[in-house]
Amino acid sequence: MHELPQQLVNGLLLGSMYGLIAVGYTMVYGIIQLINFAHGEIFMTGGFGALAVYLWLLPEGTTMWLALPLMIVGGIVVSVTIAVAAERFAYRPLRTAPRLAPLITAIGLSLALQQAVWAWFPGGKNSRTFPEIEAGPYHLGSVTIQSGDIFLLAAAPICMAVLAYFVRKTRTGRGMQATAQDPDTAKLMGINTDRIIVIAFALGAAFAAIGAVAYGLKYGQVNFRMGFIIGLKAFTAAVLGGIGNIYGAMIGGLVLGVAEAMATAYMSDIPGMSQLGGQAWADVWAFVLLIVVLLVRPQGLLGERVADRA
């Protein structure tokens, strides 16, 4: 069991990334009850946005310490632009349509974004290598932290703290909470709910872009399909944590990440389970966990019962 600390760290790192992406699902769902299935692709475009900055806007050989902040900005600009445009032109006209219409639109948008990157990003048909941070690895006892993980390790808590401050302490943040709890009454307070919805999309996209930069640094590559599976996982994390709750999204991500790491590492050691262990089965166990949690707490780990919605 001496590898346990490392496996925990592996899971927490993976989970932090799920959490960063899950925030976008949960905020949008919390406010307009839309499962924005294109969010995984918004994440993906953020990665390509950051890469584009590195490849074409920065002189060759720019040190990563200088390049990284600019790449993050680039990724955020791309993701946020796409998310806001999607809200304005695809989702808003469907605000009062039956639920299925925006859902199908989201799926269509997701495919369109994948294909757009595939077709138009130079070399986008294959994986594109992402620049690395030249540092580390760092050893803490039996735990190794790789250079690509440092960014994620720092970014995830900072992002969550900023988000928590924003939602609880700023006027716009309170307006967002109010809109999530009761959109009509929020309008009676003078809250421009359309604007709040745009902000929710934009914030979610910005977090996804930061997650995508973390992905690129951690795995050394980005590709046009990278948003699909991880988007599903992040959505799972959002549901696990209680969809609509931003802290739930992060907690759900971490729980999911650790569960996957543990399943990969130890499931096959349980007698009789050797066929059901390993990384390929980790996804299955992650969903088993989701089902168990939802059976016990249908509203998710931190979710509130919807009854008080009146």
Binding site: L13, S268, Q279, W281
Partner: peptide
Amino acid sequence: TDHVNPDTKDFGAV
């Protein structure tokens, strides 16, 4: 031994 999911890029645990 282990089996991986070809759609994943995180092999930290493995």
